[in-house]
Design a protein around this nucleic acid. Structure first.
Lengths: 244, 244
DNA sequence: CAACTACTGCACCAGTGAGTGCAATTGAGC
DNA sequence: GCTCAATTGCACTCACTGGTGCAGTAGTTG
């Protein structure tokens, strides 16, 4: 097996990457120990998610996770104790990452920060931009892998659904509903139930992508993405836009 | 792979089954025998789908499938040759069943068969009824299990996506688009791209159910189903309904 | 009865992978 | 130099499962 040398190499690169990220290493000596531990933990979680995403839960083996993380198999058990726990932790970490990106996008959905008066055209433009960004985020590799793993293992890990969605999709919908409520109150949208509006806008965005991206196994060209986003916004505005 | 002999045998039985179905003029005795065979085959496929749905592909074991089907393990191998093939066949069979139900529902979406003139109110009522029926079908146990299995194993069986969707979701969307095109041409909907309209209507229906049914692990009460359907139809009509 | 096919029950092999035990190593703190 | 914790490499156990072989049975056909 050539796995040994590969593993060693992986360790090195992982540590290099970690050091590069926290490059402000003034007192690296003091923090070195615990920092090294955290780096390893993060490397393990990242590797675990990669492997799980690629193979599924049952077919993913701890040895490969350790190898990809550049770590000994024992270390994985030391940090996370159990395959089940590795799975949970990896998915939670990935959900955190994905959510952070999505929330940042929704934050941009506001009537403020515009020089010109915020008319229907500006509203549509803003919605278009946010829709496109959401589509980009919702269709990237990691997001789809997370989705697929959730679907696949929700029967065996029912609690995972609450945890991951509580951090991810649930928060996204909540945040979007908040923004829509503000817009509605300001008269830019007709009076409506913001939760329902958010639910439907997200459905109009993500629903079509399921088939078009073939469950995330096909890269969707930019133009198609833009078409789906535009179409979703058009339908959304027809139902929720300001009364003409 | 040692599956050569098994595969050959499976091919043979498959050909026999196909021939038996098409050649209706066979002797009754001959038919009795093959009928028993077909019953067993169907029992196996049904059991396989149940077990796969419950455990996932990797954790499902052939022994349990045979047990649930009320059949010896050997018989499963005789009929289908391979775990992989059992999986494929079970999913295809399930997809056929689900599709048949869904298509039957969409057939009802038409302006004909009404005594009173087909006005906007009648249109909405018809859409509401179809939407509700579709929601019922899309949220039952088998449909969700199929979905989850597809999501879970699309990475390992990419061809399954084409096969199952070609028979299921793809046909549904196509059929719905056909119906919408008819309605649009008759002036009951405003001129539009029927494919896009169908895509969005389905998205508005199925999208919200993902969260509300917790990926199919929670039974959604009738009232909630009706609310989602009504809301979807309302938004759909706002975007595609006849110009007031 | 003989032949044949489908089916059954059982034992068996081989591969795989989770998790553990142990000795050796590294590196930080004293 | 010494200690302690983290880590590593290796070998190992144990359980599970896909798939096969074989002998025997039931039912049908001729």
């Amino acid at each position: 097996m050539t796995g040994t040398s590969a593993a060693t190499k992986a360790t090195k690169t992982a540590e290099e990457a970690g050091a590069g990220e926290s490059a402000g290493g003034a007192r690296a000596a003091r923090r070195g120990a615990s920092r090294g531990r955290i780096d390893k933990r993060e490397a393990i979680l990242g590797a675990a998610f990669t492997v799980f995403a690629h193979r599924g839960y049952a077919r993913a083996c701890m040895e490969e996770i350790a190898e990809v993380a550049g770590v000994a198999k024992h270390t994985v058990y030391n940090h996370l104790g159990d395959k089940e726990n590795v799975f949970r932790s990896a998915l939670e970490a990935a959900a955190d990452t994905v959510m952070a990106e999505n929330l940042a996008v929704v934050e941009r959905l506001t009537a403020e920060g515009h020089d010109t008066p915020f008319g229907p055209d500006a509203l549509r433009a803003t919605l278009d931009a946010v829709a496109h960004q959401l589509l980009l985020r919702c269709c990237d590799e990691r997001s789809w892998s997370l989705r697929r793993l959730l679907y696949a293992e929700v029967a065996r890990f029912p609690d995972l659904l609450e945890v991951v969605w509580g951090r991810g999709a649930g928060r996204l919908k909540q945040s979007l509903a908040d923004r829509l409520a503000r817009l509605s109150l300001a008269g830019h949208l007709r009076p409506c139930d913001p939760a329902e509006a958010a639910e439907q806008l997200l459905a109009l965005l993500t629903g079509p992508m399921e088939a078009r991206s073939r469950l995330g196994t096909r890269r969707v060209p930019e133009a198609e993405l833009r078409a789906v986003g535009g179409s979703a916004v058009r339908t959304f505005l027809a139902a929720y836009g300001p009364v003409a």
